[in-house]
Design a protein around this nucleic acid. Structure first.
Lengths: 265, 265
DNA sequence: CGACTAGTTGAGGCCAGTCAATGTTGGTGG
DNA sequence: CCACCAACATTGACTGGCCTCAACTAGTCG
């Protein structure tokens, strides 16, 4: 059982008490300017001076332990968060407690922008491993953006990309079969790891089968079976959460057609 | 057959030639200040002076005829659009030409923000009936937002709400059964019509069964059957595209449980 | 060791998809 | 005005992909 509700919140909405549990992060090593994710994150393309200004906005950098919530659905919105290290899932809760995972985010991704709209977070964010985020109080961010147009632009861009990401996900959920969904998920992960300088053909999943299933609108047994099947076909190699993509070209081909009526050999 | 690709574009990306086909709209009746959608749209909460400034930004108001595209997937991004009158669907195209509908938008909604991210529209927007939009060139909008912080805030809010809307849709596609999806869709429409001063219990669908099916990740026959079934249960009344919600409470109850194990009578 | 979590695999059932026939509606032209 | 046609919608019969239920394995932690 995941006692997520019993675990202490790393950061919770605006409650001052909660921030006390934030483990202080060494500021010497944490500057946008020198951050290796610079080009994937908010400061992308900004000049050094602006980057330094942005650096001052980052009120604190927080560690979030595995399974802790960065924010929860319904929490008052105050900040957006840039992931420095680690991985997060975003989720929504049904009335009966079941969770629907809506996204998987890694270093350089900005999360929490869903709260700008009406001051409350629509989804929650939970760390999939011990992680670190830069806390960007939105008030201050917005203020700085008015002084530095380029930053405002970048912020719009980040949020807009979130819209696109969600649209892509709706496309996946609305029009792909189970196997295609998993393949699309794997290829998406691969591309994002590659963009971050890691191997795009060999990586470790941060999610359980159940979490992957939830994200893809499937059941865990189905995901497990699909992994086995893709391995059987020689397209991938799976060992628990370690995945190796053996034939990316073949995988990409699987996304082409909706349901090929079994073409002849 | 929908010859959408053969139909003239009302407005297409940045090509100046395309704007020639925009049917000029009577400017006398089209001011944000006096627009009845004022409170649902970008100028929400802005003071009269700012609203007037925003009004000047609206370079033109365009009529888009039924089945015409306002923008297409891959089009260069230049503007966002506020719907004045009518309804639009947004869609994405698979390689094989099939379309996946990702949203349904009506008066007051802002569409096109998916293009801010990387300068190209991720999805397309097609009018479901003869419609009118306010064209908001993003460059100018952004510029004005720097002078008027409140406008910038509203713009962030609008885009963020888009993120929430997409998340809600992912929740629907990922965790609801067919009937629940249709019910959620109907209740969502009802709420939006109500917010616009129309009846929330009796309205006309702007989409075909096939379009509704695509939006909900189903097939048209399934949607048709579900309509018949909901009518049979006495929850709604359907006649083609005219829908009457007879028992909203019962409909809302249907969204509660994932799959009730057939409770006894 | 026992308890628990995570993952795999099998058997069977059901929901929604597929295929197909028919009915309905709305626009167009004789 | 009606005939005609195409698009839209409904309904039935059947199928199959994914879910459900269940058993079993492996790894981890107190």
């Amino acid at each position: 059982m995941i006692h997520s509700s019993a675990l202490p919140l790393a950061i919770s909405g605006t409650a001052p008490a909660a921030t006390a549990s934030v483990i202080p992060y060494c500021h010497l090593t944490a500057h946008c300017e020198s951050c290796c994710l610079h080009d994937l994150c908010l400061p992308e393309g900004l000049d050094p001076e602006t980057t330094r200004l942005l650096d001052h906005i980052v009120s604190n950098r927080a560690r979030v332990k595995r399974r802790d919530s960065l924010f929860r659905p319904g929490d008052a919105f105050s900040s957006v968060y840039a992931i420095r290290v680690g991985t997060f899932k975003t989720l929504m809760l049904a009335e009966d407690g079941r969770e629907q995972i809506t996204g998987c985010f890694m270093g350089g991704d900005l999360i929490g922008s869903d709260g700008i709209g009406d001051g409350r977070h629509n989804c929650g964010a939970v760390a999939l491993e011990d992680s670190e985020v830069c806390v960007l109080p939105f008030e201050q961010l917005d203020e700085l953006a008015h002084k530095v147009p380029a930053l405002g632009r970048n912020l719009y861009r980040c949020i807009s990309r979130d819209v696109c990401r969600s649209q892509d996900m709706m496309f996946l959920l609305g029009s792909m079969r189970a196997e295609q969904r998993l393949v699309a998920f794997l290829l998406n992960l691969a591309a994002r790891y590659r963009a971050r300088g890691y191997s795009g053909s060999e990586f470790v999943l941060r999610m359980t089968r159940e979490e992957i299933a939830s994200l893809l609108g499937l059941k865990l047994e189905t995901v497990s079976r699909l992994f086995s099947h893709l391995q059987g076909e020689g397209f991938i190699q799976v060992q628990g959460r370690s995945v190796k993509l053996l034939d990316s070209a073949a995988l990409k081909r699987m996304l082409r057609k909706h349901a090929e009526p079994r073409a002849l050999a």
